[in-house]
Computed example of a mutant assay.
Amino acid sequence: MLSNLIVSYDLHATGQNYDAVIKSIKSLGGWAHIQGSIWYVNSQFNAEQAAKHVWGNMDENDSLIIVDSVKNEAYWYNLANEVSNCIQANWNR
C-alpha cells in the first residue's frame, strides 16, 4: 500500500544543503511542493523509513516531521520537547 506523506522540515543553520534535502524528498516517490518547506509525497516508504532517508541529508540541529495520512503515523527528528510531547499525548485521542 502506498503512503500519502506530508513532509515538513526546517534547516536552522546558514549554508545548509537544501538541494540534497529536496532531492532526497523527491526520491521518495511522486511529489508536489506545497509551500516553503512542506511537501506531499506518494511513496512506498512509511513515515519512519522516509524520515530516516531524508534525515540523512540534514544536520542534527535541523528539524523534520513526516506524517503518513494513510497509516495515521508520524515520525520526526529534533522537534521541540513541548511539540513532541503534545503530538504524543494527543495523537489518536
Rank of each mutant, 00 (worst) to 15 (best):
M1L: 13
M1V: 15
L2H: 13
S3L: 02
S3D: 02
L5S: 01
I6L: 07
I6R: 05
I6N: 02
S8D: 07
S8M: 10
S8F: 09
Y9I: 06
D10C: 00
D10G: 01
L11H: 06
L11Y: 05
T14W: 14
G15R: 04
G15C: 08
Q16A: 15
D19H: 12
I22Q: 06
K23F: 06
K23V: 07
S24Y: 01
I25G: 01
I25R: 01
K26F: 03
L28I: 03
G29E: 02
G30Q: 10
W31H: 03
W31G: 00
A32W: 09
H33D: 03
H33L: 02
H33V: 02
I34P: 05
G36D: 07
G36S: 08
W39R: 00
W39I: 01
W39V: 01
W39T: 00
Y40K: 10
Y40F: 15
V41Q: 02
V41R: 01
V41H: 01
N42A: 10
S43E: 03
S43R: 03
S43H: 05
F45T: 02
A47W: 07
A47V: 11
Q49S: 12
K52S: 12
H53V: 13
H53P: 09
V54F: 00
V54C: 01
W55I: 06
W55C: 04
G56Q: 09
G56P: 12
N57F: 15
M58W: 03
M58H: 06
M58P: 08
D59N: 14
D59P: 07
D59F: 08
D59W: 10
E60R: 12
E60C: 09
E60L: 10
E60S: 10
S63T: 13
L64V: 04
L64I: 07
I65P: 08
I66T: 05
V67D: 01
D68L: 04
D68G: 06
S69Y: 13
S69A: 09
V70M: 10
K71M: 09
K71F: 07
K71A: 12
N72I: 08
E73N: 09
E73S: 06
E73M: 09
A74K: 11
A74F: 14
A74Q: 09
Y75A: 04
Y75G: 00
Y75S: 03
Y75Q: 04
Y75K: 05
Y75L: 00
W76H: 14
Y77F: 14
N78G: 07
N78I: 08
N78T: 10
L79E: 07
L79Y: 11
A80W: 12
A80C: 13
E82S: 14
E82I: 14
V83P: 00
V83G: 02
S84Q: 13
S84L: 07
